[in-house]
Simulated assay, not measured.
Amino acid sequence: MSEVKITAQTRTEFGKGAARRLRRARLVPGVLYGHGSDPIHLSLPGHELLLALRTPNVLIALDIDGKSNELAIPKAVQRDPLKGFLEHVDLQLVQRGETVTVEIPVVAEGELAAGGNLLEHVLNALPVEAEATHIPETLTVSVEGLAAGASVLAKDIQLPKGTSLAVDEDTVVLQVLAAQAEEPSGEGAEGDETAEV
């Protein structure tokens, strides 16, 4: 798992106006919380943070005001719905050796059995418990040869050492749906149009 170093500054101004000023300066307002400590309000460099968040559950090494170093993982990220830029981020304080509950993206690989069937991701990400500094980036599942009606359960997914499920082992993660028969085009549609006239 990757660890990204980011320099952050504590902030004392709050509210929409202060947040807008930060964003104009290409900074992102954020909050660091956890371990029963008081939340720390931060401003973080927007571009560096955006690059870091491309990795799911990235471990961020924060240098705060040049005085303290903390480890954190992103817990909630708010983006502008139209432009996609970061508006706010919540970071959870973690320690090396600590176990955290996170959601890991599930990636399917392989070809389904012939027949034009569809693969449905019931869960796009699987909740697991993992050591904070060893969170897997993705979980890869083979769907090679699966036929309609087949399912992949949480217990079927091979987890890295030190990682355990945080959901019921019989939870359906992926399932194969039968291809839908196409509706006949032609006579039926024309008949409906005639009935309306």
Rank of each mutant, 00 (worst) to 15 (best):
Ser2Ala: 15
Ser2Gln: 15
Glu3Tyr: 01
Glu3Gln: 14
Val4Lys: 09
Lys5Met: 09
Ile6Ser: 01
Ala8Gly: 05
Thr10Arg: 14
Thr10Cys: 01
Glu13Val: 12
Gly15Ala: 03
Ala19Ser: 15
Arg23His: 04
Leu27Ala: 12
Pro29Ala: 08
Leu32Val: 06
Gly34Ser: 09
Ile40Cys: 09
Ser43Arg: 08
Ser43Cys: 02
Ala52Trp: 02
Arg54Cys: 05
Thr55Ser: 12
Pro56Ala: 02
Leu59Ser: 07
Ala61Ser: 14
Asp65Tyr: 03
Asp65Glu: 08
Gly66Gln: 03
Lys67Gln: 13
Lys67Thr: 12
Asn69Arg: 15
Leu71Pro: 10
Lys75Leu: 07
Val77Leu: 03
Asp80Tyr: 02
Phe85Arg: 05
Val89Phe: 10
Val89Ser: 10
Leu91Gly: 10
Val94Asp: 07
Arg96Lys: 14
Arg96Trp: 02
Glu98Gln: 15
Glu98Asn: 04
Glu98Ala: 05
Thr101Ile: 08
Thr101Asn: 00
Thr101Asp: 02
Ile104Pro: 01
Val106Asp: 05
Ala108Glu: 06
Gly110Phe: 06
Gly110Cys: 11
Ala114His: 12
Gly115Gln: 11
Asn117Leu: 04
Asn117Ser: 15
His121Ile: 05
Val122Ser: 10
Val122Thr: 10
Leu123Ile: 11
Asn124Val: 11
Pro127Tyr: 10
Val128Tyr: 04
Glu129Ile: 03
Glu131Cys: 04
Thr138Asn: 12
Ser142Gly: 11
Ser142Ala: 11
Ala150Gln: 08
Leu153Gln: 08
Leu153Ala: 08
Ala154Cys: 03
Lys155Asn: 05
Gly162Met: 03
Ser164Pro: 01
Asp170Glu: 12
Leu177Ala: 07
Ala178Phe: 01
Ala179Ile: 04
Gln180Pro: 03
Gln180Glu: 15
Ala181Thr: 15
Glu182Ser: 10
Glu182Thr: 10
Glu182Gln: 11
Gly186Leu: 12
Gly186Asn: 12
Ala189Cys: 00
Glu190Ala: 13
Asp192His: 09
Thr194Cys: 00
